[in-house]
């Protein structure tokens, strides 16, 4: 098990090095950040000064080594635009993204799991067919467009047309509460309202996925002998579905939810842009569009780290849920 974790961590380190080189090289090649930062009529001397200050005058490999050296000290350089350390900027924004991603995870599980299990238990009812068709819509509708339409309906049209209809906020985080130095929105009413539309948008795709997965697994588990045996033991339907079936369904659901959590964080890029949610996704887009190299690279390194850690956690979670795997991994 420990060997396995070490091997995974080494793989991860390799992936991170490769990614950072690629990105660093790519961004170096396409544009001159200095041109974006100072006014076009600045003198050549001023430019040279900025270049030097940012080490842009050094050869590429030296810049990269500088960057690696800094990275090992948790320092990814300063944002060209904000002048703040890039790492700090990202850590400052990460909680907002995580909060959004968690909210959408909770939402998609709360809605997707019961619907999917129902559709698996009663596959031939009209309700199940509606759920399944609805799930196709859920992962077909372009996510960003759904976000726009939600804004249009709940922040513009309904409040305009229906007197007294509450206007849902469509931008920003709203009021936040500091918990151990981390700002959280969901603890205030205003923050919850601000969280609502982006979280719904982000949970749509994932919820549809969970519906389909829960249904497919339920259909797989139900004809199993152990379900029939549970019925032969005289257990109530509630216990059979709630314990025997659900516990088996939860294994793939937990695995996929965990892996999909990374997708959700990634997709938050889109949602945050639409709802001006001040998370890392919006920061990334802004940095990409403005060639703010240190921020992009810092984001990448952190997100790669995040993904590798997430995959590990999911693997461990899987082994906790499935006793069969637990034994095997202990043996190796």
């Amino acid at each position: 098990m420990i060997v396995y974790i070490i091997r995974r961590l080494m793989q991860a380190a390799l992936v991170m090095v490769v990614m950072s080189v690629l990105v660093f090289a790519g961004i170096y090649l396409i544009g001159d950040p200095v041109l974006m930062m100072i006014s076009p009529d600045a003198s050549e001397l001023e430019r040279e000064a900025v270049r030097k200050a940012l080490h842009l005058d050094l050869p590429m490999w030296q810049q990269y080594l500088l960057f690696v050296n800094d990275a090992l000290h948790g320092n990814f350089g300063k944002s060209f635009l904000a002048g703040q350390p890039a790492m700090g900027l990202i850590f400052e924004r990460f909680p907002a993204t995580l909060e959004l991603a968690f909210a959408s995870l909770v939402l998609s599980l709360a809605i997707g799991l019961p619907l999917g299990v129902y559709a698996g238990l009663r596959p031939h009812t009209a309700g199940s067919k509606t759920i399944m068709t609805g799930s196709i819509l859920g992962f077909s509708l372009p996510n960003f467009w759904v976000g726009l339409m939600l804004i249009m309906v709940f922040a513009v049209l309904l409040p305009d047309l229906v007197p007294g209809w509450p206007r849902l906020p469509a931008s920003g985080r709203g009021a936040t509460v500091d918990v151990l130095g981390v700002k959280l929105s969901f603890l205030t009413g205003d923050g919850l309202l601000h969280l609502l539309l982006p979280a719904v948008t982000l949970s749509l795709y994932k919820g549809a996925l969970i519906v389909r997965l829960a249904r497919a697994t339920a259909r797989e588990v139900l004809p199993m002998d152990y379900v029939k045996f549970a019925r032969a033991k005289g257990l109530s339907e509630r216990r059979i579905v709630g314990v025997h079936v659900l516990k088996n369904i939860m294994i793939p659901i937990a695995t996929v939810s965990g892996l999909e959590f990374g997708q959700t964080v990634a997709f938050a890029v889109v949602t945050e842009t639409i709802f001006s949610w001040p998370g890392v996704g919006k920061l990334l887009i802004d940095s990409i569009l403005l060639l703010d190299r240190p921020v992009v690279v810092a984001y990448l390194v952190i997100i790669v780290f995040f993904f590798v850690a997430l995959n590990l956690v999911v693997d461990l979670l899987y082994s906790v849920l499935d006793p069969r795997v637990r034994l095997e991994s202990r043996a190796t």
Partner: peptide, 9 residues
């Protein structure tokens, strides 16, 4: 890695 991130980068 999520397709959207890779494509974005």
């Amino acid at each position: 890695f999520p397709a959207i991130l890779v494509a974005l980068i």
